[in-house]
Design a protein around this nucleic acid. Structure first.
Lengths: 141, 141
DNA sequence: TGACAAAACGGAATAATTACGTCTTACATA
DNA sequence: TATGTAAGACGTAATTATTCCGTTTTGTCA
């Protein structure tokens, strides 16, 4: 039984989410995939075992899980993509393959390099740093 | 007559785009706004003077202009936002206000700090570095 | 000025995402 | 193990952003 799943169960319990067969399968798929996937991909996969699964359920679960840090999200190519949160737990960024969604982790963060950039009174809430391209596997077609 | 508009006319001519009253107004609005705006905002503004303006026309022009670097784009809050390209011409990044879309320019780029990150054969095509928050003006409500 | 390619129109299609009212189920508790 | 209840799931429909396409209008240049 994966460490990721253990962690997910804990967080769900803490936050008052129940585990259901669908949620288990959704998490299983994402932990296995280990890349950014779209809601549509999730739907296509999970409907093999749960033919009536609705998008409402898929989006609700994906967003709920992202809210409790079981998943990470990014907006890419006009749609939201979801992946298992990196186990490291520490702040990090990604190289993201545009073909398959696989990622490589960058353990550095440009915010650390920047001096105080808010002289003007800008209040920083968040940031995004992502590198896009093609992974070695996809380059070989 | 603005330098930005001169530059836009040049680029349009070079790329074979015709200037029309609507395009002129669209550019005027964006050059004046000087912040990220959505297609909807553009539509609402331009329809004051061109009531029948269609979204097709708006999106076509916005994307055409972005393609020839008269505009910059970013994907934010589930939609595409457009703004006048920064005149500097040099590569840069932005702090973006989530309330009003105004930006502050960061002249540094994290890619310069990163050593070679593509040891694994990942081919870098592009990157995105944006800082989100509230600008001083919006903080005062 | 006239011809022609580009631009705009307009309305409908597509695609992602969310809302909502109802039915079902996981799970704590007895 | 049975059961009550709040959470989850359903499913359909609404919303919203974006694009497509066939037709009409318009800028530009000879």
């Amino acid at each position: 039984m994966g460490k990721q799943l253990e962690r997910a169960r804990e967080r769900m319990k803490t936050s008052g989410f129940k585990m259901t067969p669908k949620r288990l399968d959704l998490l299983g798929y994402l932990f296995e995939a280990n890349r950014y996937v779209s809601a549509r991909e999730v739907a296509e996969e999970l409907r093999l075992s749960h033919p009536s699964l609705s998008y409402d359920t898929i989006y609700r679960n994906l967003n709920d899980f992202a809210a409790i840090d079981i998943l990470e999200t990014t907006e890419l190519d006009g749609e939201m993509k979801y992946r298992a949160a990196c186990v490291s737990g520490t702040h990090h960024h990604h190289l993201i393959c545009r073909s398959c969604g696989k990622t490589e982790t960058l353990d550095v963060c440009p915010m650390e390099w920047l001096g105080p950039v808010n002289e003007s009174g800008f209040e920083i809430e968040d940031h995004k740093f992502e590198i896009y391209g093609r992974c070695a596997a996809c380059l070989k077609n």
